[in-house]
Amino acid sequence: MRNLIIEPTSKTPKIILNADVNVFEISGRSIPEDSVGFYRKVIDWIDDYSKNPNPKTNFKFQLEYFNTSSSKCLLDVFRRLEKMYKSGNQVEITWCYDADDEDMKETGEDYKALLEVPFELVSI
């Protein structure tokens, strides 16, 4: 399948979804004008990937800041991963946050509370 690589901009995060090397990462800031449109590409990619996923998928998130419409979209992304996990795949989410960024840690905890998929918070 084709990989999804999107370079970061001042409004949108960097996306690396590379099944060949088993790297799945979303990092940077996320305040797009059209969050739903932006994350649609990610969700479509996951939908496609989940038809034939790698033996192990670790999805890494390392966000600087994001707006509330992005926070909804992120939950949609997590829900897709949760679905993959529930259908018997080995899926893990890693939520990285700056050691001194308690807000980003708290946001990670919010997501973790809402999801039934291995969700690890990592301070960096």
């Binding site: 707006n67 509330t68 939950l75 919010d110 809402l114």
Partner: peptide, 29 residues
Amino acid sequence: LKVYYQELLASPVAEKGLSSLGMIDIARK
């Protein structure tokens, strides 16, 4: 605020809900 935030985050919301979510975010942060 945390409980309310999670509740709104998980519910399918329209524009009004998104605006509330933003305000909760302001209050929490």
